[in-house]
Amino acid sequence: MGELADPAAAALSHDAVEELIDARGRELLRQLLQDHLDLRAAGEERALSATVAGSNGLVDADGVVRRRVEKGHHRRLATIFGTVTVSRCALRAAAASCDRGGAGFVRRCQRGNLEQVRPGDRARVRADV
C-alpha cells in the first residue's frame, strides 16, 4: 500500500484511488485466507499423523482400515478474494500384495481381496477398477 504515499498518487482521481485500494485490499484478503488454509493443512497433517501413528489406523465408512497418511494433495479454489490453493491429506489403506495366478488366470486386488480372473475378462476388469 506504499503506492498511496507516492507523490504520483496525489494526482490520481478518487475513483482511481478506490480501484487501487480495492485491488490491493483484495490481494491482502486473499493472502490472509491462503495463510489460514495453510495453517489448517499443517494442523491436519500433525493431527492425522499422530492419530494414525498412535493407533492401528482409522476405519472409513466402508470399513476399510487406513493406516497411511499421504501428504501434499493440492487443489485450486476460486474465492471472492481470488484463487487460493487448498492442501489436504489422503488416508490410504495398506497395499495388498498381488501375485499372478497359474493356469491361464491372472489375479487382481480389490480392497485387499484377491480375485481370479480369466484372461478374456481383462478388459472388463480394467473397466471395473
Rank of each mutant, 00 (worst) to 15 (best):
E3A: 11
E3I: 14
L4R: 01
A5Q: 13
A5V: 10
D6H: 10
P7D: 01
P7K: 02
P7A: 04
A8L: 13
A9I: 04
A10E: 05
A11M: 11
L12P: 01
L12A: 09
A16T: 12
V17I: 15
E18Q: 12
L20E: 02
D22E: 10
D22L: 13
A23I: 10
R26K: 15
E27A: 14
E27Q: 14
E27T: 08
L28C: 02
L29R: 10
R30Q: 14
R30A: 08
Q31L: 14
L32P: 00
L33W: 01
D35Q: 14
H36P: 00
L37T: 09
L37Y: 13
D38H: 04
L39I: 05
L39K: 12
L39V: 06
R40I: 12
E44V: 15
E44D: 15
R46D: 14
R46W: 02
L48N: 03
S49Y: 00
A50H: 07
T51E: 04
V52E: 05
V52M: 05
S55N: 12
S55W: 07
S55H: 11
N56G: 15
N56V: 02
G57N: 03
L58V: 15
V59Y: 01
D60M: 01
D60I: 09
A61M: 05
D62K: 13
D62Y: 03
D62L: 11
V65D: 02
R66I: 02
V69I: 08
V69R: 07
V69C: 04
E70T: 03
E70G: 00
K71T: 11
K71M: 07
G72D: 05
H73A: 10
H73I: 08
H74N: 08
R75N: 06
L77A: 09
L77D: 11
L77S: 11
L77Y: 07
A78G: 05
T79F: 06
I80N: 08
I80S: 14
F81W: 15
F81K: 01
T83P: 02
T83G: 02
T83L: 09
V84H: 08
V84A: 09
T85V: 15
V86T: 10
V86K: 12
R88I: 06
R88S: 14
C89L: 07
A90D: 03
A90H: 11
A90Q: 09
L91P: 03
R92F: 00
A93M: 05
A93P: 05
A94L: 11
A94S: 11
A94R: 13
A95G: 08
A95M: 04
A95T: 11
S97N: 05
S97R: 12
C98N: 13
G101M: 08
A103I: 06
G104D: 12
F105K: 10
V106W: 09
R107N: 11
R107V: 13
R108Y: 14
R108D: 01
R108F: 15
C109R: 10
C109V: 12
Q110G: 03
Q110V: 15
N113M: 08
N113W: 02
N113Y: 02
L114N: 02
Q116D: 10
V117A: 07
V117H: 06
R118Y: 02
P119F: 12
P119H: 09
G120W: 06
D121W: 01
D121M: 04
R122L: 15
R124P: 00
R124F: 04
V125Y: 07
R126Q: 12
A127C: 01
A127Q: 09
V129C: 04
V129Q: 15
